[in-house]
Amino acid sequence: MDYADRGKLGIVYGDVTLGVHGEDFHLIFSYQTGGLESMVKHGKEWLYRTPKPTFWRATTDNDRGNGFPFRAGMWMTADMFQKCVDIQVRIDGTKIEKPSAPVNNKYSDKETAERVEVIFTYETLTVPSTQVKVSYLVFADGNVRVRAHYYGKEGMPELPAFGMRFVMPTKADGFVYEGLSGETYPDRKAGGIHGIYEVEGLPVTPYLVPQECGMHMDTEWVTVKRSTVLDNRNRHIEQSGLTFRAGSEINHSTFAFSCLPYTAEELENATHQEELPPERRTVLCIYGAVRGVGGIDSWGSDVEEQYRIPGNKDIEVEFIM
């Protein structure tokens, strides 16, 4: 059945998953892992792990110098372990009963829709705890609108960052983006020049002690390019890309992103460059908020107030895949 010609999505109501597919793309949402488990475009799998909200960026020398890890360290644990406490499914705007077994048995193998939205609610492993809601709205043309909302709460420490983390199965060839030139942060972007830039590979700044690096502020879009897959029959295929585009239904906005071969925790765990693991994956983080890096006197002063992220304020990031 050609769903694209009909302007429809095909839906598969599985026992523990919800499948959504159209012309040359397939998505699988998992009730077990609590998120988008598989995203196949033109036959290539783009996910190695279920995307989750991210709260941590690796600490810098300046962070350690002013004691920020001691004030905000619980966010690193929250970044690593998240509990999905609720899942909602909306078909063409109408909420339905969660279609896991045995509820899913009432559906046929020919179900279609124009739009499918799956909303995951996560509870943070913090004291006090709060929630993050992540919505995936799938359109018939294959675009997926992702909206992540952090609910601020009194008593929360400042956050290092907030956004969504996507871990891809293999190391990317590089990425292209429209935004500010070079590496930029909220308090280090005055010299950035807006334009379209192509980056080869996934460069990691060779600090003596691995730390936060590779951030790009005020981004309109980024395309990650890959030509390898985890398929022993044929690991190298024709290069293809996946684009993440900023924007909101209400107003135009931009995002920050980093595209590295390591998670923030892997960078945090290494005390020297040679302790970093081999570069196997692509870790793309799309941020709605990023803490500044400071460096006013190199070691002791905190980041200026306007470049901090208070834990008691709501934060939202929205983009189209």
Rank of each mutant, 00 (worst) to 15 (best):
E200I: 11
I87R: 07
I119T: 09
D61G: 08
G311P: 15
I91V: 13
E37R: 12
A72F: 13
G174C: 05
I320V: 06
E23L: 05
V40N: 09
Q131C: 07
Y197Q: 09
N62T: 14
V127I: 14
R57F: 08
A72I: 09
V20H: 00
N251W: 03
A78T: 09
S258I: 13
F55V: 09
V303G: 02
E279M: 07
I237W: 01
D109P: 01
V20A: 02
P99R: 06
I193M: 09
T184I: 02
L267P: 10
G14I: 03
S240H: 02
D187I: 07
V12H: 10
A72L: 10
V127R: 04
G300L: 12
N62C: 15
W56K: 11
I296Y: 05
C213F: 15
V118W: 12
S298C: 04
I193R: 10
E305M: 11
C259H: 05
G182M: 07
A101C: 05
V85F: 03
P203M: 06
I320W: 13
L18T: 08
G179A: 15
W56G: 01
Y136G: 00
T282F: 00
A140L: 00
Y307S: 06
D5I: 06
R281G: 10
Y207F: 07
H236G: 06
I119V: 09
G241C: 09
D297F: 07
R233T: 08
D231F: 06
A58R: 01
V20Q: 00
D63T: 15
E304P: 01
S240T: 10
V167L: 04
F257Q: 11
A246I: 07
T219E: 08
H21W: 07
T205Y: 12
Y150K: 05
E212D: 13
A190E: 14
F68N: 03
K52D: 13
M164T: 04
S38Y: 00
D86L: 01
S301Y: 11
G14T: 06
E265R: 13
I250P: 07
I11R: 02
Y31Q: 12
G152R: 13
I286M: 11
D109Q: 10
K95N: 03
I320H: 02
E265H: 04
V209M: 14
E238Y: 13
V138W: 00
D2K: 11
A264G: 15
A289F: 05
D187K: 01
S248Y: 00
D86I: 02
S135T: 06
L47D: 01
D79R: 03
T282G: 08
E275R: 01
Y122E: 08
G201E: 14
P203T: 08
K95W: 03
G191S: 06
T205V: 08
P53I: 13
A4V: 12
G214F: 08
P186R: 14
E268S: 04
G295Q: 04
G73D: 12
